[in-house]
């Protein structure tokens, strides 16, 4: 199914920094990695880097908002550093799956902070 392959490539782009780096360096090779047909490869390339990065930033902000809601005292104690540190963490660690994914994410972020 062409759409399934396209969605797998998009999910990587939306959530993985290394995938974005590969895509921005060579969109055609990135499309080949997912065995996309020319039509789907063109769809992928049509997104544009500016909108892609704006979307990724919005996904990271949403994750950071959830983490701040679940770790309010940590967010208060760290102030602006909370978000800065979260964005660094989010670039390396993708969001998990399932209904408890934001709770798990906050827990992983807390562990990340302890390791600093």
């Amino acid at each position: 199914m062409p759409l399934a392959a396209l969605q797998r490539a998009l999910a990587q782009l939306y959530t993985r920094q290394d995938a974005r780096d590969r895509f921005c360096a060579d969109p055609a090779e990135f499309a080949r990695d997912f065995a996309l047909r020319p039509a789907e490869a063109a769809q992928l390339a049509s997104i544009g880097e500016t909108r892609l990065h704006a979307y990724v930033d919005s996904l990271d902000r949403k994750r950071a908002n959830e983490a701040a809601r679940l770790l309010p005292l940590v967010a208060q104690a760290l102030g602006p550093r909370f978000r800065a540190e979260f964005f660094r963490y989010a670039r390396r660690v993708p969001l998990g799956r399932g209904p408890r994914r934001y709770r798990d994410d906050a827990r992983r972020f807390a562990r990340h902070l302890r390791g600093l």
Binding site: M1, A4, R8, L10, A11, T15, Q43, R63, P94, R97
Partner: peptide
Amino acid sequence: RAGGIAIGHLAPLPFTRE
């Protein structure tokens, strides 16, 4: 979500018959 990855928010579909 796709390929075992949760995107974390709503991602648009291509407006195609598929």
